[in-house]
Nucleic acid binder design. Structure first.
Lengths: 244, 244
DNA sequence: TGTTACAAAAAGATGCTACTAATGGCCTCA
DNA sequence: TGAGGCCATTAGTAGCATCTTTTTGTAACA
């Protein structure tokens, strides 16, 4: 019965705990669908899943149910499990985003996410200017200052971390729980931008100034200015990514 | 064993097909969590679910897995199933949105969704101006004209339908699959606005003109104008909803 | 007496197998 | 062309073995 014993199971700190079997099957199937390996309309049966991943019917069912709840597949009697048209997928599900970022269609997913950022972040900045708490306003200002320090020092790694913290805090301060839920995706986009070398070696001074402007406007409760300043940040992102 | 036989099972047209059992359990549990009836931190066991909803262990598990994939709960050995903090919920999952709209926190969900519309739709309009197909551009213009006709005639019901079609088509023409996925939510917000009587008896002429302006700008491929015109539409929505 | 250390027990999810019931697609036949 | 029947395949039930983590009990120790 295989009794996995995943080799690297020696993680002393319980850190890299082996993910539960059903999650591994879920990821494998999700990635297969998202990558197009299992094309829309493709029909599977639970038996197929059992054999393909060598798991019990229970796990095959579990996986199928989760995939169904994400609208990646639907399941009907006598037919089996059918891969849905991508139009119907719950593309906001973080798992799906992760799979798409791991697939060959990575670039598409990135540009969608970037466009989403361009839409959401200015409004989130305006919301933060109206609704952020005192501590959040202070922290945002501090982060903007740190961004300048790290940026001028050329410490890209630390800069990225602070940048993620800045944008994430802003989304969280917006008071809109749907915006908050986008923090992981923004972090993903930001770190990929650095990793892919799309980031200048030193952040442009305009970008640093724009972050400070956002922080100042939020701190001062000036929603319009915060929105405009965030727009400036994203304009730079847009051009850096070659979007129109 | 209750053998439900849902009374109204006589739906000749197969129209009101009784939803599958696991979906009913899922909805019931989801609503209980979202409404706060099952508060964050609350611990359940599969046995509890089996008894509470009188279903087998398999169904209890299925439901739990789906809820877990939405981050509404997590499940750990020896602990049970624990309701997650709302901060961690996948608030973009349409099921969750539906449950929240059905709960007493409806108003909160509406204002979040409206703010999301305010963020996304102008950028979607700009995207449509750049990327829409010829047929979509034509259809959008036609819908704007129909909106004027229906609006001036005071046919609110038909107006709502056309309005939903307009905004939905725009999102679909944007070429961003994440924007497309928001069509259901926009439809929900629009129809609720009409149902709640938040809509003027006759749409304001400015609104009609703004829709025409969006359609014209998209048809003409003028992204900036499309974005600005969509902004005008949403400014009206914003004030109608009493948002800042 | 109070505190740490370790072993045993228990609770509850994880995962498996094996079954019955229902249903919808497809084929046959009139 | 429509009705009826077959059967593949999910929907749903039942029960069991296993594995993990928490709790608890007990002993050693300060």
């Amino acid at each position: 019965m295989s009794t996995v014993t995943e080799d690297h199971a020696g993680a002393t700190d319980g850190e890299a705990a082996v993910p539960a079997l059903h999650l591994r099957v879920l990821d494998a199937l999700g990635e297969a669908i998202v990558s197009g390996e299992l094309a829309p309309g493709r029909r599977l049966t639970l038996d197929d899943l059992q054999q393909q991943y060598n798991v019990s019917r229970t796990l095959a069912r579990d996986t199928m149910r989760v995939l169904e709840s994400m609208n990646l597949v639907y399941s009907r009697r006598r037919v089996g499990i059918v891969v849905q048209d991508p139009e119907l997928w719950n593309v906001f599900d973080p798992k799906l985003v992760r799979w798409r970022l791991a697939s060959s269609r990575r670039a598409e997913q990135y540009s969608s996410l970037t466009e989403l950022r361009i839409a959401v972040e200015p409004i989130a900045a305006a919301g933060a200017a109206r609704r952020a708490g005192a501590a959040e306003r202070r922290q945002l200002t501090a982060l903007a200052a740190e961004l300048r320090r790290l940026g001028e020092a050329g410490e890209l790694e630390a800069f990225l971390k602070a940048d993620i913290a800045f944008h994430s805090l802003l989304l969280h301060s917006s008071g809109n729980e749907m915006f908050k839920a986008l923090d992981g995706m923004v972090a993903e986009v930001l770190s990929s931008r650095t990793k892919q070398g799309l980031m200048p070696f030193k952040p442009r001074p305009e970008a640093l100034a724009a972050h400070e402007a956002v922080a100042a406007a939020v701190a001062g409760g000036d929603a319009g200015t915060a929105e405009a300043a965030m727009h400036n940040i994203l304009d730079e992102v847009r051009t850096a990514m070659g979007l129109p």
